[in-house]
Structure formats: structure tokens, C-alpha cells
Lab assay of single mutants.
Amino acid sequence: LVRYRTISKIPQITLNFVDLKGDPFLASPTSDREIIAPKIKERTHNVTEKVTQVLSLGADVLPEYKLQAPRIHRWTILHYSPFKAVWDWLILLLVIYTAVFTPYSAAFLLKETEEGPPATECGYACQPLAVVDLIVDIMFIVDILINFRTTYVNANEEVVSHPGRIAVHYFKGWFLIDMVAAIPFDLLIFGSGSEELIGLLKTARLLRLVRVARKLDRYSEYGAAVLFLLMCTFALIAHWLACIWYAIGNMEQPHMDSRIGWLHNLGDQIGKPYNSSGLGGPSIKDKYVTALYFTFSSLTSVGFGNVSPNTNSEKIFSICVMLIGSLMYASIFGNVSAIIQRLYSGTARYHTQMLRVREFIRFHQIPNPLRQRLEEYFQHAWSYTNGIDMNAVLKGFPECLQADICLHLNRSLLQHCKPFRGATKGCLRALAMKFKTTHAPPGDTLVHAGDLLTALYFISRGSIEILRGDVVVAILGKNDIFGEPLNLYARPGKSNGDVRALTYCDLHKIHR
């Protein structure tokens, strides 16, 4: 019993810090008490220290592992850092350059016999395009090294910054494609005289377009951006097909006994025919423009016929181009109408809503002055909100995010209106959640004399007048207030005048 009563005193000691020596009952000389009392004092002292730490809000209350900052290894790049964003855009520009100039170089340097010394005699450094290609190869190699040090988000939505895990993730992902696209074939085969082989191998750079397509997928929600990307894709495919079309004609031209190829026909049409040795002929500019003209006309199913396939190889390629053109029509131009419709969806919704308003007016036989006010209010409210119901949009977000959005939407009023000066951010967040926005066209009466005042109004834009009878008592403008002081009276009061809008007004109100 003594032991039980001794232990039962522990909660009292913990909360009230009572010393055991003052209790005459606990001072009985028993061996059990002498053993338990020192333990009680020690526990009391420890609990006292913990309570003191909690009340003082000291940093040592938290466990040590929670006080440590997340460790980022040296030379690790955050995937959302500004440097990584700028670097990704730079790589994107280099990939676009590669997609345009690599097929052009591979096709127009394929057994090209233009006048001038061969590239091997001039030297590697004197070729501007080769120098640019070398810079692109170096940048792609540097990009691989950067990807080995860039964080990523795993399946659990955690940012991984450990170098080993980053390397394994990159090896399992895009490393092989990036490595093949970054191989400097110019340096590996330079001086061997195989410019045709170098041009063909350099087309491996186009593998990076797969990554670019995935990154550009984030802009699919913007109709104008999608339309622009589709047109660029169409032009890029036409450019690639033009390079292939020229390569076919250029390879067949020296081996044909009869002059029936499209390059021969082009030379005869523009007065620059090929001679018996295969030299001469149109310039590279004429060849490229004509090839691009043929691919565009074939892809769009126009086909004027002034550039036509004559050999079997050219006919087979033309059939493939027609098939590609039909697929592009289905996948690209078939979506253009939907994209344009999405661009004008706001206008369509406006006309639909206006039609419903006019049908309501016609069905209920609203008189002319009231009908005009109804239409003007709808037009003004639509121009202010673009038909978007803010309350319906915010309803799907958590309250903390709703408060931040409301604070942002009402920031101008909260910053410049005098009653809100000096208020804490928590108070402003709470008030912003209570605001209701209303609009009024010129001549609209917001409050009639004798109406119950259940709200306090803040003028965000425009001006109003307060009338008693036919006498203008006051004219209020931006950041002015009218209405009933909230919670100042037990019952809502009545208006002693009319409140009429002089201009288009936007008002925020808080109800009782």
C-alpha cells in the first residue's frame, strides 16, 4: 500500500512540481520508500527539464536528425535550378540546329562534286560548318556529364541527390541515346576521305529529338503553341524528305545512260545542264529549293507536275512521300480545326451564355430598361472574369491554397485601402477568403433606401454616388468604403439613402 501511494504521487509531482519531503505519510521509514524516492526525484528532475525545454521552444527539443539540413553532394545540380533551365534551352537550340543542318550536310555532301578544292585539302579548321559541328559534339558530351550530376524525382516524389543513384537512373534511361548522339564521328573518321560515311553517321544526332519531343509535351495545353509546333514538325519532315529526294537524284545521276532524272530535267529547265562528264548542272541553292518544293507539294497532295519522278527509285520514294503525307494530314492537320476551336472556345461560351440571357429575357418578357441593365451587367461581368467562376475553380483546392490565391487576387485593395494598413498577414488572409466580388454598370442602383444592410462594401474600381431623395450626399471612388460596420450592432440596419454607380464599378463586399 505504501508503495502504491508513493507511485500514485508521481503525476502530481510531474505537473505541480511538489516535493515529496513535505508529505508526512511518505516520510515513514520503510525500505521500499527509501529505494523508490531517489528514482522519483530523478524522474521528476528529468520531466521538469523536458517541460522547461518545451515551454522555452528551444531548438534542442527536436531530434538531432530533424535539425540537420538535407545534404547535397558537391557538384550536384538541382533539376529545378536556373542554371539547369538555361542549359536545357541551350541544348534545345543545338538539337534544332542539328535537326536542320545534319540531314542537309549528309545529303548535299554525298558524292558532291561542286567546283573547288576537296575538304581534305583545305583542312578541318577552315570549314565553318565542321567547326560548328565540333562545338555541338562537345556541348552534347558536356550535357552527358551534367546529367550524371543532376537530381531527379523518383516514384515516391522524392528528390534524389545521391550521385550513385543518379548515375544508375541515367544509365537506365537516356544515357545510350545521348551517348550515340554525342559521338564525334568527324574526329574519329577525319582524314579518311569518307565524307559520305561521316554525313550518314552524323544523322545519329537526330535521336535527341525524342527527348525534345517529350520536353515539349508540357506545352500541349496551349493551343497556339501546339499549332506552332505542328507546323514546325511538318516543315521539318518536309526538309528531311527534300534532303533524301536530292540524295536519290544525286546518286543516280552519274550512272544513268539517259538523262531522265529530276536533276537533269531541272538543269535543262533553268539552262544549267550537266555536261557529258557529269559536272556542271544547277547550283546547290536551286537543287535544295526545288527538292523542298517537290516534297511540300507531295505532302499537301497538290502535285503540280513541273517536278516529277521519272526513275524507279524516284517513283518509289514519291509513293512513300504520299503515304507520309496522308498520315500527316490525319495526325496534324486533322487537329488544326480542334485547336482553332479551342482557341476561340471563350468567344463561343460568351455567345452561348448571351443567347441564354436573351432567351430568358424573351421568355419572361423583361421590360426594355431592365433588359438593357441585365445585358450590360452580363457584358461587364464577362469582360472582368472571362466567364470563369472563381468560386467553382477554387473549390477543388485546399483552404490554405485558397487563402493564398484570394490574398493575391485582392492584393491591390488590401495594400491601398486604409482600414487594412497594419493588419497582420493572417488577418488579411482571413479577410480575403470572405470577400465576394460584384460588378455594376453605370446607372445601376446597388442599394435602395430602406434596404437591409448586411454587408460592408469596398470599391475596387469606378465611382458611385450616394443620394437622399434627389440630393447627392457624397461621391465615392476607388478604395472608399460604404455599408454597415460589421458586428457593431446586434441587428442589421437599414439604408438611409440610395447608392448608384456612376461608372463601371468593381466592388468587394463582406457579409455579416
Rank of each mutant, 00 (worst) to 15 (best):
Y288N: 01
N386P: 01
L370S: 01
Y246V: 09
E376A: 10
E157S: 11
D133Q: 15
D178E: 03
C126R: 01
V289H: 03
S194Q: 14
L188E: 07
D404L: 02
L109K: 05
I270G: 01
L145G: 05
A242L: 01
Q353P: 01
L109V: 04
I144L: 06
G193T: 13
L323W: 11
V307N: 03
Y219A: 09
V289E: 01
K172E: 04
T424V: 03
V393G: 02
T311N: 01
Q372W: 03
R211F: 03
H439Q: 15
T150C: 04
A106R: 01
G422Y: 01
I332W: 04
S276L: 04
L323D: 01
I135C: 04
W89H: 01
P398A: 01
H351G: 03
L93C: 01
I366W: 01
R373Y: 04
E252W: 01
R373G: 02
S326A: 07
L230M: 12
L236E: 01
I144T: 05
H239E: 01
F363E: 01
G396V: 09
I177L: 04
K111G: 14
P118N: 14
T113F: 03
A125P: 09
M433Y: 03
A107S: 11
L394F: 13
L446W: 01
H416N: 09
H264D: 02
P398C: 03
V336T: 03
N310K: 02
D137M: 01
L110W: 15
R165E: 13
C406G: 07
E252C: 01
D178Y: 01
H162Q: 10
P118G: 12
P282A: 01
C400M: 09
P282Q: 01
L216Q: 03
C400T: 06
V447R: 02
L92G: 01
L370I: 03
S331K: 02
A182Q: 07
I332N: 06
F435H: 02
G123H: 05
I146A: 04
S161I: 11
R421L: 08
H380A: 14
F83T: 07
L266N: 01
E64C: 07
R211K: 07
M179A: 15
A423W: 01
T203L: 10
K84F: 04
L188D: 09
